[in-house]
Simulated scan of single mutants.
Amino acid sequence: MENVKKFADWLTKWFTLIVIVWAIFNYFVPQTSIWGKAYTGYLLGIVLFGMGLTLTLDDFKRILTQPLMVVVGTVAHFIIMPLIAVLLCWIFRLDGPLAVGVILVGCCPSGTSSNVMSYLSRGDVALDVSIGILSTLCAPFMIPLLMQWLASQYVAVPVASLFLNAVKVVLFPIALGVICHMIFGKKIEKVTVALPIVSQVAILLIIGVVVAANGPKLFVASSLMAIPVVILHNLSGYALGFGFSKLMYKVYPKGFRYAQQKAITFEVGMQDSALGATLALTSFASNPIAAVPSTFFSVWHNISGSILSSWWRNHDDRHEIHWDSDNGEKGSAKNADASSEHAFDADKKAKAAAK
């Protein structure tokens, strides 16, 4: 089991590079993954079943114990990212299936990668996970609603198909995973060690299918236009997510402190691009190019998230900002250490006096 964990850690560390190499390989050898086009829904179902296996009732209770931050973070995600997508489609004059693909990835819930980035940046991982759970559970309802509102000007949006496919690949697998966790309890922990491997392999297969299905269309001028759009989409999500959380700190400073601001930044800016690609391939099957923005997003947001989390951690260390500071005050780490040392000395004196 230790070897499995080591391999999972290695795969996570190099996942972005592996994605790039795998995508290039499938571009030149499309028959490697094209067979999986009919199974993308099942592949994503496996990923979300694994997510359900890791969840307990405490994870859902956490949403109820801090509802304001979780709900506000989720609402911000479903407002900011879809509207940025529409604005970028207008600025870059995207049309047809490619515009639909950009809006679709913008309407998706936050991705599990955001949990890792929040952890690496010393953000509030518990809040990050809670927003991720709620946004994912809302996805089958929010995606068709937002797509009908924002993307129907480009193509006819199959609302019923989007809803049914989202329910099948999102709600059912998660619910089944949670039920299995409730039934088997701690026995599940032996399985969860391998879940990162299973999830990442499934995501790789989905990406391989998208690249193989689009082949010659992938690097024409119209498709390549999706690359700067995806980059700006993701970076704008980070910027507006952070700006929004800073604004909320002024309204409710107790709940939207520095660690929570980091969590909301990643939750807004990072998308479940695997879900976007799967829904594009199933609900817009006649236009597989709609899955291309999700594939580009999958590669890019892992790169940008890693860079941002690393920069944030180094920035905090350089300016001595404590991870649990109110609003990222410089020198708060030094003050926290001094406060801890003072409390320790006071405790020592109290014990000595008691003797």
Results as ranks from 00 to 15, higher is better:
residue 75 V to Q: 04
residue 65 T to M: 07
residue 43 L to K: 03
residue 85 A to K: 05
residue 42 Y to N: 15
residue 70 V to Y: 08
residue 64 L to I: 09
residue 67 P to C: 04
residue 60 F to D: 05
residue 64 L to C: 02
residue 72 V to S: 05
residue 68 L to T: 13
residue 66 Q to I: 13
residue 76 A to C: 12
residue 75 V to L: 13
residue 81 M to K: 01
residue 65 T to C: 03
residue 73 G to M: 00
residue 62 R to A: 13
residue 67 P to V: 06
residue 62 R to M: 11
residue 66 Q to M: 13
residue 41 G to K: 04
residue 43 L to I: 01
residue 44 L to S: 08
residue 44 L to K: 11
residue 50 G to K: 15
residue 77 H to R: 01
residue 46 I to Q: 04
residue 84 I to C: 07
residue 53 L to T: 11
residue 69 M to F: 03
residue 61 K to Q: 08
residue 44 L to E: 10
residue 61 K to W: 02
residue 53 L to H: 10
residue 85 A to I: 05
residue 78 F to M: 11
residue 82 P to C: 03
residue 46 I to K: 07
residue 80 I to S: 04
residue 78 F to E: 06
residue 47 V to I: 15
residue 62 R to D: 12
residue 86 V to F: 09
residue 39 Y to Q: 07
residue 73 G to N: 10
residue 54 T to D: 10
residue 70 V to K: 02
residue 71 V to K: 12
residue 50 G to V: 11
residue 65 T to S: 14
residue 82 P to F: 03
residue 82 P to H: 07
residue 71 V to C: 12
residue 42 Y to Q: 15
residue 40 T to A: 09
residue 70 V to E: 01
residue 48 L to K: 13
residue 84 I to V: 11
residue 43 L to M: 09
residue 56 T to E: 10
residue 61 K to F: 12
residue 69 M to W: 02
residue 68 L to I: 15
residue 67 P to I: 01
residue 53 L to R: 10
residue 68 L to V: 09
residue 49 F to D: 07
residue 55 L to D: 02
residue 74 T to I: 05
residue 54 T to S: 15
residue 74 T to H: 04
residue 71 V to I: 14
residue 86 V to N: 10
residue 57 L to S: 15
residue 77 H to N: 11
residue 78 F to G: 06
residue 67 P to H: 11
residue 82 P to W: 09
residue 71 V to E: 08
residue 58 D to R: 14
residue 75 V to D: 10
residue 44 L to I: 14
residue 59 D to Q: 08
residue 51 M to K: 12
residue 46 I to H: 03
residue 83 L to D: 05
residue 48 L to S: 06
residue 56 T to S: 15
residue 56 T to F: 08
residue 79 I to A: 02
residue 71 V to Y: 07
residue 81 M to H: 04
residue 42 Y to W: 14
residue 39 Y to P: 07
